[in-house]
Design a protein around this nucleic acid. Structure first.
Lengths: 161, 161
DNA sequence: CGCTAAAGTTCTTTTTCGGAACCCATCTTT
DNA sequence: AAAGATGGGTTCCGAAAAAGAACTTTAGCG
């Protein structure tokens, strides 16, 4: 499979990865969630090559995950901000952060903690069923064809991809 | 920043990405969650170059996300299975799947649906606070130093990375 | 003996990446 | 007015990684 075809795969994971599945993109987005908005600041904090950063910002903007907004005229300067689509990636961040906290920390514990302002506690995410509220576990899930499945998959009787 | 240094960054996101932050790894893991276990089957389903697959399986095995188990002797054949560490990546999958369903589907809807066997409903994940049960939103979170923060970060007064 | 299967490895050609230099339109300082 | 400084890029090069195809190894089968 070639990388540019990924967004047309009949799989939401593949399609998501066509946007965020590369080495730098999620690190750029981490900075966005930490309110970093300017080219220079991304570059300094990440140590990313400038043309790679330019490319990623453009791709994220084209994908509707970031939007470019002028913050001054003369000289015109623009900053990058998360759109609603981008903010919706927060659960992906949380899932990766929690997994890293649990499995990639040394014996001392995780380098950073997240506190939930609403209740005041240090927290991690629990992934619950939107319908019954129970925690979702891999072995409790089945996959089935959705409305957007390609005809070939429907004809094949719903072999999950 | 160089890619091999990523796992030593004081950031759980970066550390997680040092394992799963590449083009193919999460697609390989998708297949694992769909009970694919053998080299050939990964190759056929993914259309991945064999040496890239061999490399990813080795890295995932070295990282403790997969384990290699013989399923027959003479000739010896081995299959790859998710470890507990690997199964714990399920929330990452869910988050990416749900995001893709919402933002990357055509007008017809998502190509596949996930049903929760426990309650019988088609579902998506809600990311809730482990302490208070409310949904976690980006703007309700603050970051602070954890026990594993490097001394330099503590000295700098907790500048979040 | 020749054929097939599973799981890799090797080789060659494209892409992508990292690092550094350069560009350009405006302020700011001398 | 000339000489930086700033922000946001683009260009160029050599190095690293990926795609694609062929080759290898161990063993069973007819």
């Amino acid at each position: 499979m070639r990388w540019e075809e990924l967004d047309r795969e009949p799989c939401s994971l593949a399609r998501s990865l066509s946007i965020v599945g590369d080495r730098w993109t999620l690190l750029v987005l981490r900075e966005c969630f930490l309110r970093v908005r300017r080219f220079e600041e991304f570059e300094q904090r990440l140590g990313i090559a400038r043309h790679v950063l330019a490319d990623r910002l453009k791709k994220l903007t084209d994908a509707g995950v970031l939007r470019k907004e002028p913050y001054q005229e003369r000289p015109r300067r623009e900053e990058y901000r998360l759109t609603e689509k981008g903010l919706d990636l927060y659960p992906v961040m949380l899932a990766l952060l929690d997994w890293g906290d649990k499995w990639m920390s040394g014996p001392e514990g995780p380098p950073l903690l997240r506190r939930h302002k609403v209740c005041g506690h240090v927290t991690h995410a629990v992934h619950t069923c939107s319908e019954c509220g129970e925690e979702l576990k891999a072995r409790d899930m089945t996959v089935e064809l959705g409305p957007g499945a390609p005809a070939a998959m429907k004809a094949a009787g719903g072999k999950a991809e």
